[in-house]
């Protein structure tokens, strides 16, 4: 019976999560809405992250680089341009940055790619800081954009829905097959005619577009941004661990990870703000040592064991 239960969770979870995430914004109050916005924002980024890093096994820490670029695009252009143009500009800047970074990292092996993406985020933070201090003459800036939280939430949901739909299509497409082959064996991929370099760069850009757009959408939520907030490395680390926690092999895996960890982080950041980072570390260790493929496969494995035991008892 329990295995049936686990199976039901596995099949039903996506539906439950979508329902939970998509609760009409009008129905929920300010605090719940801010949590929901957070879940939606991390949902976009973790799904986009898993889209690239899942099949290619290139662990990217550039998430916050793209996100921050989006935030700053909105902060700079938001006052003077129509919102649609702002979002488009954010998406384009993210894609451009990703294509450049992607082309520079083609020859790098796994570990160096991680360091490169981390450095890229840090470099952007330093450059923006320097620019703001020396040219703008103030390290932070105020973002006065009148967008209601409920509106931000629906935009993020729209983005998430678009991303999931595209990710679903991608999985069934030729490109999706190419990605699985690249993840399995790069040499084979090259020798059956896949332009692995192109696929990798395109996919990196594709996932970056969603991260940057999420950053731009969320920007009006903060009235004040500075580089330390917009380019906080913690965001990259959180997105990474949420995606892995849920499991990157499944379309809805990252979302499950986001839904569970966002709430946990939310609770901890209020109750134990000083221990949050140590807790993040523990989750990293938990994932590596206890459930390397994420919580959903781990649950179904436990389910199988339980089912076997029940059979043995019967």
């Amino acid at each position: 019976m329990r295995s049936v239960f686990v199976g039901a969770i596995r099949r039903g979870a996506p539906a439950v999560i979508i329902a939970a995430v998509a609760v009409p914004p009008i129905l929920i109050d300010g605090y719940a809405l801010s949590v929901a916005i957070n879940v939606a924002q991390y949902g976009v980024m973790a799904t986009a992250w898993a889209m690239f890093s899942g099949p290619t096994r290139y662990v990217s820490l550039a998430t916050v680089a793209f996100y921050g670029v989006g935030v700053y695009t909105a902060a700079l252009l938001g006052g003077s341009m129509p919102w649609a143009i702002v979002l488009l500009a954010a998406a384009l800047s993210g894609a451009t940055l990703a294509i450049l970074a992607g082309m520079l990292t083609l020859r790098l092996s796994g570990v160096y790619f991680v360091i490169f993406t981390f450095s890229l985020s840090e470099l952007l933070r330093q450059i923006v800081t320097w620019y703001e201090v020396n040219v703008h003459r103030s390290v932070g800036r105020y973002v006065f954009l009148d967008v209601a939280p409920a509106h931000i939430y629906s935009q993020l949901l729209g983005l998430l829905a678009l991303l999931l739909a595209l990710a679903w299509l991608l999985r069934r497409s030729r490109m999706g097959l190419a990605l699985r082959i690249i993840g399995a064996d790069l040499v084979v991929a090259n020798h059956i005619g896949i332009d692995t370099a192109k696929v990798r760069v395109l996919l990196f850009a594709f996932s970056a577009i969603f991260m940057s757009t999420a950053g731009a959408i969320i920007a009006p939520r903060w009235t004040y941004v500075d580089p330390a907030i917009a380019f906080s490395q913690t965001i990259s680390f959180e997105v990474l661990i949420m995606a892995l926690f849920g499991g990157v092999q499944l379309l809805f895996g990252p979302l499950i990870g986001v839904a569970s960890l966002c709430l946990v982080f939310e609770y901890l950041s209020i109750q134990f703000p000083d221990q949050l980072i140590a807790f993040l570390g523990l989750i990293y260790l938990l994932i590596v040592y206890v459930m390397p493929s994420g919580i959903v496969p781990a649950c179904s494995a436990v389910g199988q064991v339980l089912a076997l035991r029940e059979k043995a008892v019967a």
């Binding site: 030729r174 097959l177 190419a178 082959i181 399995a184 064996d185 040499v187 084979v188 020798h191 059956i192 005619g193 896949i194």
Partner: peptide, 27 residues
Amino acid sequence: IARTFQLVRVLGAFTCAQNVAAALAFH
């Protein structure tokens, strides 16, 4: 021009049919 490898390289997690399908998909 196609090749085989001295130390056999197939996609282990794919079935035989999928291995062949992979090679059919990109030319």
